[in-house]
Simulated assay, not measured.
Amino acid sequence: MKSILVVEDEPTISRVLKVYLEKNGYLVIQAYSGKEALQSFKGQSPDLVLLDVMLPDGDGWSVLTEIRRESTCPVIMLTALGDVDYRLKGLASGADDYISKPFIGEEVVARIHAVLRRSNTVFDSGKTKYYGSLKINLSSHTVYLHGQEVKFTPRDLSLFLFLVDYPNQTFTREQLIENVWGIDYDGSDRAVDLAIKRIRKSLDQWSAKEGEIKTLRGLGYQFCVYEKK
């Protein structure tokens, strides 16, 4: 049974989420503050975090930052703030999705299903690919650079492995959203740009002579490789 950590300081909203999630077969862990959220996260290792932005002892951004320092656990931000800047801030900080209040319970469940499905994607090729100092195992979906594992958020990993599966092939933002985010995604296509930026930062020690995540202006992105063995 998958466990969901619900971080929401409004007891009524937290109870509603708990009912919907338990009805759909999830184990629900409830936290009502940032401090309690981090304690529960470290102590119970949930499969996904549903994280409210506004908390009584701070904000969800700081909780997200702490989670990302040690884990790639999927995180969905939940907030009454519907401005696109807040949505982009969450995605840039490593959130996997963003839901604005007021929400429909079924939508929250559907988003959770989608994020968990992406994070659990298994690549069946069973191959390990090498691009110079970069090692990519498409079976265990792990990435190593200079022998050290590179940690990605689930969505960033899905995006990176999708591009790796089609080396030197260009994809538009719309194609990447459809294949990685899913056709039901209703956010900004800038999420692709932010994810690419994070992936590049994670691979900043990868030699430019071996490959790169390349931007083709007006066309899209590609996993461009120059040396493979």
Rank of each mutant, 00 (worst) to 15 (best):
L5I: 10
V6H: 01
E8L: 06
E8P: 02
D9F: 04
P11F: 02
I13Q: 12
I13S: 14
V16H: 09
K18I: 08
Y20P: 07
Y20F: 15
L21Y: 01
L21C: 02
K23F: 10
K23D: 13
N24Q: 13
L27W: 08
V28Y: 05
V28W: 01
Q30I: 15
S33E: 07
G34S: 05
K35I: 11
K35E: 11
A37G: 07
A37M: 04
Q39Y: 15
S40G: 10
K42H: 12
G43T: 05
G43H: 05
L48D: 00
V49W: 01
L50C: 11
L50M: 09
D52Y: 07
G58P: 05
D59P: 06
G60S: 08
G60P: 08
S62H: 15
V63K: 01
V63H: 04
T65Y: 15
T65S: 14
E66Q: 14
I67F: 06
R69V: 07
S71F: 09
C73A: 13
C73T: 15
V75Y: 01
I76V: 10
M77I: 04
M77W: 00
T79C: 01
G82P: 06
V84I: 14
D85S: 14
Y86A: 04
L88Q: 07
L88A: 02
G90F: 03
L91Y: 07
A92Y: 11
G94S: 05
A95T: 05
A95I: 03
D97I: 10
D97H: 11
S100N: 13
K101H: 03
P102G: 09
I104K: 15
E107L: 13
V108F: 04
V109D: 06
I112Q: 00
H113G: 04
H113R: 15
A114Y: 03
A114F: 07
